[in-house]
Design a protein around this nucleic acid. Structure first.
Lengths: 339, 339
DNA sequence: ATGAAAGCGCTAACAT
DNA sequence: ATGTTAGCGCTTTCAT
């Protein structure tokens, strides 16, 4: 079994209080005592039992991060950044997987308190606006993503519509007029796809460029293969276009491959714009012009917001939920140079 | 504050023992009592405090998974699988990031017990065989990967050398003779790169095909960009080859892109073989023939092995470390068809 | 500067 | 079938 305070105290010939004081760096300890305790700690290889400490403190020192799919680079990178941000404040991150399944997501919200964690950072995918009330949970929660707005929980997200509009305006400004959009979700209004499609349409409208439904490529998932399929379909339909706006980078890489297969030069024949700025965007050939949605900021802010909520809730307060929006920027690379 | 057993007991007019019994499904309870308790639980919204339960049980219900880099698809997919396997046995996974940095890895091993977790699944990258003794830690540990062998901890890994040999033999059998290898590490003997290079050489030797150092592409990291760079270098050097064996899939995709840029047809001019069988291998164009290293099995076995070690260590036993090897297989796809 | 002791919320041994 | 109680390892008043 593990060594306890009591055993250290016995060996050092002091009380457990003194050992606790030494371990926790309490200042007023006689140097001699301190040394004896430290020797005993070293000899026995004592490490504090965090579970006991947490029970005493009324917290667990861990937060839960629930993501739909670690296989998508965006989420994998987000996870890495949340872990980093949490680690910086001494919190451990427990990772959960929902597979974007609505039932699993709802179940997670219901059961999350059973996992000994101080709060949840949650990125739903299967749940939608109608499920907003399920976010009214009795523990600290920070929502990510674009599935649910104005819900009863803190929310960290980005200006999807503005960003998509800016991306489209960028393509328009570089002289493109027939901009294909891939990754649309049939009938979606709220959600990354719906919002970004709106931004795209707003930019077209403002520029007086007619919206052509034939330019929209629909696909449920946003993996590389889906982008490839959608692009193949677009080409097969013989639609003309001089630019492609992919609603996420991974999808866009798939589309880019198919374009190149088909002999379309990027950016000469077709300019390509992505969304997410995942790491690979810097290294692809050509490198990908894309929307940087501030995921680092989102990760840090999610952790920060959750910590703040944990603190206020511990004081018995319950301030109204806040929404925090990340800044975005267009990262210009080879696939869509400026005009 | 959260509702406790005591409050539920008070409301239901029973003792906390009875409430505990009900909550834990102890069978012999009078139906009426059970109902009253359940009503009280529901009314107050009681959920057990896991920290207290864990303190009592002497375990935390969580395991730690430490990986070098979530940005690499292989590790992201491995994480997802470990989480799934752990979840199936009721364990939570705490994820840590080492960035493949030796000092961070050593620090992690030292401090891991401070994190309230029952054990560690650890995939080192910066540490090497010389650091084997650092694995002699006083808590349950399962080692992954190919950096350290015969260390003082349980080890779940695969037959790297055999697998690389089989992959090379497959290419030879399909009639290729000039097989470029990319992803080699200068001077490495132990480690994924070193072992796989050895397997490659063994296959060549067995087939009587001379080893040509000019065919070896060196690169430290195994990201897509590294594969692309290495392949560009190979092409620039004017080395002739009719096949490429990439030491991981991600790297191989980068190389494949450059090959296609250069007008080499896959598999007609160059057959391409990867290693890892990440999801994308099914969807790339062409789809990637690769070594399936049994990551699902590795994830499940790592969790299983760790749980077994946790159990024996709790009984005060300390059986010698075990090594468990995953089976591999060659997944034949378009990039390198059978002869 | 240090010790004694209560108590965080839970489970289980022991009673009844 | 249910109640009483000790104790998991720790921190923290309250004494001294």
């Amino acid at each position: 079994m593990a060594v306890t305070l009591r055993e250290v105290a016995e060996l050092a010939g002091v009380s457990i209080k003194t050992v606790s004081n030494v371990v926790n760096g309490y200042p007023h300890i006689r140097p001699g005592t301190k040394q004896r305790v430290e020797a005993a700690v070293a000899e026995l290889g004592y490490t504090p039992n965090l579970t006991a400490r947490n029970l005493r403190a009324g917290r667990s020192g861990a937060i839960t991060l629930a993501l739909p799919d670690m296989g998508l680079a965006y989420f994998a990178e987000l996870a890495a950044q949340v872990i980093e941000a949490a680690e910086a404040t001494g919190l451990i991150v427990q990772l959960e997987h929902t597979a974007g399944d609505r039932d699993r997501e709802l179940e997670l919200l219901r059961s999350a308190r059973r996992h000994s964690s101080d709060g949840l950072i949650f990125s739903p995918l299967g749940m939608g606006q109608d499920d907003a009330q399920a976010l009214a949970v009795p523990y600290p929660l920070a929502l990510l993503g674009e599935r649910i707005f104005d819900g009863p929980a803190d929310h960290v997200t980005m200006r999807n519509q503005d960003a998509a509009r800016a991306a489209t305006e960028y393509l328009l400004a570089s002289g493109r007029r027939r901009i294909a959009l891939i990754g649309a979700h049939q009938g979606e209004v709220i959600g990354s796809a719906g919002l970004r499609l709106w931004g795209y349409r707003a930019a077209l409208e403002a520029a007086g460029v007619p919206f052509d439904p034939a330019l929209i490529g629909y696909t449920g998932l946003w993996h590389r293969a889906n982008g490839a399929d959608t692009m193949r379909d677009l080409l097969a339909r013989g639609v003309e276009f001089d630019a492609v706006f992919g609603l996420n980078d991974t999808l866009t890489f798939g589309a880019m491959r198919v374009l190149q297969e088909a002999g379309r030069r990027i950016p000469d024949d077709v300019a390509v714009m992505g969304f997410d700025d995942i790491e690979e965007a810097q290294y692809s050939i050509p490198s990908l012009t894309t929307v940087h949605p501030g995921h680092g900021w989102i990760a840090r802010t999610a952790v920060e917001t959750l910590i703040a909520r944990i603190a206020t809730q511990a004081e018995g307060l319950n301030p109204p939920p806040v929404t925090r929006l990340a800044d975005f920027s267009i990262i210009v690379r080879e696939s869509a140079p400026a005009a």
